[in-house]
Write a protein that binds this DNA or RNA. Structure first.
Lengths: 209, 209
DNA sequence: TGACAATGAATGAACGTTCATTCATTTTCC
DNA sequence: GGAAAATGAATGAACGTTCATTCATTGTCA
């Protein structure tokens, strides 16, 4: 379909990034060495430098890939039939047994990196803004489920939801590794549903007064 | 009051940790060098090794200090006259112009570190559990403000609150450095109040239906 | 078709640098 | 004077990066 050498270049880059995300999640951006990455990818160190200018560029490419993953996740959330299901997608995006990726440890590292690397910070902010706008729209669109009781705007609700999601992601890195992706997913779903209940569930009967 | 040499030892350790938190927040655990720390503290490199076995020990001590800070923060939250004020303390603990510390970038790094260092993970988990228990108790005690409408237990509410607080902390590291502590504090307070409104505000009048 | 030339993906040893850590030496203080 | 505190040059390991080299593949020409 398109040029084979461009395809194979993209494949190589993807192969290196696949290895990098494993190494970064395992050791962190600055403790994972280029040799670690090359070993994980099953190639030589030098070859990495054919596809990326330097380590920084690998990190940036990983951040860019994360942006794509978030966009894809948002798209799935957008297509979910109910707001609750959208939230569930939002909260379990990082509980990957295989694909899609978005590994918790990597994201926490990404934020840590953002705190000192303005370029990474800009990218993360951009991702965040897009994602938050998407969720805001999702809420605005699902207006039927919410009463105006708490008086919060969709944007404010989106911010709350995103904070909880990010907070749960931080908690996720603390979980013992023995915990499977499925167990972690269950845990996230519970929280997503609780949050939904608090924010959106139409009240049936006030308990009293 | 107590042995002077023990006091001075503690002073030196505190001095080194003060420098370390600055360097760690600025460059991260593994990019901040022992020379950076010694320069920031205004002492020689070798002297650090008189008070800490190695760099790992400095990081562990920082984590332990963080534990103390969280405990102190919790104590302040406990003594606040209203639940809302407790939440406000919880959400602004890291917006320090001077003291108390708990710097956002440091905490995010701490979680990143926890994801690969089980010793740090245990300590962070321990802190988290204590803090969550404290907030759970706070909520249970303030029963008067909450109706049973959303049907969540105090523990579940505490988990939600903590997630939001951690999520906002992550967001905090993305903010441009030009933003002052006061501005960031204002931002955190808004969110704390919104959360309080959603979770606890006694409903006056349903808008409709 | 077959011989030869050109290509560039891939390798990994080597280089210069940085870093945590050590320790012989000096300073401080009782 | 001597014990404890403090120094910072020295050490060696580990790192990111480079580059001379290899070699399978592709292109050229008879």
């Amino acid at each position: 379909m398109s040029q084979p050498q461009i395809d194979s270049t993209l494949d190589r880059r993807a192969q290196i990034l696949d290895a990098a995300v494993v190494c970064f999640a395992k050791r962190g951006f600055h403790q994972a060495s280029m040799h670690d990455i090359s070993a994980e990818a099953g190639i030589s160190v030098g070859l990495i430098y054919r596809y990326f200018e330097n380590k920084e560029a690998v990190i940036s490419a990983m951040a860019a890939r994360h942006k794509k993953e978030i966009h894809a996740m948002l798209e799935r959330a957008r297509q979910a039939p109910t707001l609750l299901e959208s939230l569930e997608i939002l909260f379990t995006a990082h509980c990957c047994e295989n694909e899609p990726r978005v590994i918790s440890a990597f994201v926490v590292d990404l934020y840590a990196e953002a705190s000192r690397n303005p370029q990474v910070a800009d990218l993360v902010c951009d991702v965040l803004k897009t994602a938050m706008d998407g969720v805001t729209e999702l809420i605005a669109r699902a207006k039927e489920v919410q009463s105006a009781e708490h008086g919060l705007t969709p944007a404010e609700l989106a911010e709350l939801i995103f904070s909880v999601a990010r907070g749960m992601l931080m908690l996720d890195v603390l979980r013992p590794q023995e915990m499977t992706a499925a167990e972690r997913r269950t845990r996230q779903l519970e929280v997503a549903r609780r949050l939904w209940r608090v924010l959106f569930k139409p009240k049936t009967e006030p308990a009293y007064a």
